[in-house]
Design a protein around this nucleic acid. Sequence first.
DNA 1: ACAAAAGTGTTCCCCTTACACCCATGT
DNA 2: ACATGGGTGTAAGGGGAACACTTTTGT
Lengths: 233, 233
Amino acid sequence: MDFLINKDKFADIWSDKMTIPIAAMDMVIFTIYKWELCIVLWYDRERFPNKYALPGGIVAKWFSLEDNFDTILERETWIKSWVYKEQLYTFWNPGRDDRWHVISISYFSLVRAQSFLTDIDFSKIDLVKYKDLDKIETIYDHKEIITYAKQRLRWKLEYTNMAKDMLGDSFRIAQLQEVYEIALWKKIDKRNFQKKIFKLKMIEETWTLDKTTNRPAKLYRFVDTELKVYEVI
Amino acid sequence: MDFLINKDKFADIWSDKMTIPIAAMDMVIFTIYKWELCIVLWYDRERFPNKYALPGGIVAKWFSLEDNFDTILERETWIKSWVYKEQLYTFWNPGRDDRWHVISISYFSLVRAQSFLTDIDFSKIDLVKYKDLDKIETIYDHKEIITYAKQRLRWKLEYTNMAKDMLGDSFRIAQLQEVYEIALWKKIDKRNFQKKIFKLKMIEETWTLDKTTNRPAKLYRFVDTELKVYEVI
DNA sequence: ACAAAAGTGTTCCCCTTACACCCATGT
DNA sequence: ACATGGGTGTAAGGGGAACACTTTTGT
């Protein structure tokens, strides 16, 4: 866990005499990059060869979990743009070292690729395709956390307008459908998809056309800027 | 937060020099008592007059969150029987005192009334009806945590066979329906309810009769002892 | 006999799903 | 002209919701 933090700053908490576990935070950051679902992962080729880790760090006293998230996010990844974030689960995270007991408060996050590619520090961070997850190694239980986050992503797409945080301001309806097909990992009938999206009043026309496709396509935007839950029961 | 724990045992963590927040655990324990949905709440008439608190305590190092739960549950409430438990949310829990920053890992729990009434220490614990929640005061943000837990209860009843952990081994189908009506706070048509429950194969006949009602009623049991999620999508 | 709770089917509507052809533009 | 992706409607089936009367027992 020593990579998480500047040890000098928190020297006392690493003492054997510490009687309580240490609260840390790990963040699973999803993004769509080149129409592939990707995760933003941290690496250190020297200390953890061939292993990835979730960006994260020790939670600082007196700051809310959300403020901690923003601070750690920028420190670890250099991402400064707004990201969607929600708390995922708190894992009891034993690690390897028997001197430290770290509890990991994990967060689920979405970032638009176009808004962070300029910020990100690629000497420490990789974009890993979700479908390559079983080809990589992670430290500790981070792969389990990622799998858990993927379930949340799926649920949120099925029941909310969360896709707005993975797309730009306007988009073709086929692009929206592609987000769903990527994240839910299945083909969707485009007529039924449109009917469903329109019935929910999730998106509306912008009355402009995307001329980059063969036949120009209508561009849409999300009706709501806030996260909206569509009741199923 | 001093009521959470024997301070002497963890003397060092209350120091001003402590640089990290303290991880604690709070548990929202639901039960059905006399066919009312109730919450198991802690009180101390001298230190917090007219206020209730969720049972909880500081998380001990080296023990998993679930082990901590069991220990704290027995210490705070004397409940020794098996209870259903699942993690709910981790709240940043400022409290009142500016020397301590406590993070509350909250748990959602169900206990069968008949199995804990013999254990419980009613000098420290009350059963509070959920519908009286707005009539009572709690310390800190515990009311918010309870409201959050109630949403989880609702969701779990709608999508799983979790009701098995609120009823005895056998029950009349009207009793099962009553659990749903109490927790979802609405009337349900009994014919439609039966059709739904049977189609899911959630319960089965025991081939015995309950003779305590006017017309004897069939007794049922749950088919699965494990928590089962009934897919909605 | 009457009160109290158990038990039991049908209809309608809406939502989901499956499915195929024409259209507008670029090359 | 042809390739590419955009745009559109209908029919069938399944699931949920609304709804009332008869049965069995205790008093």
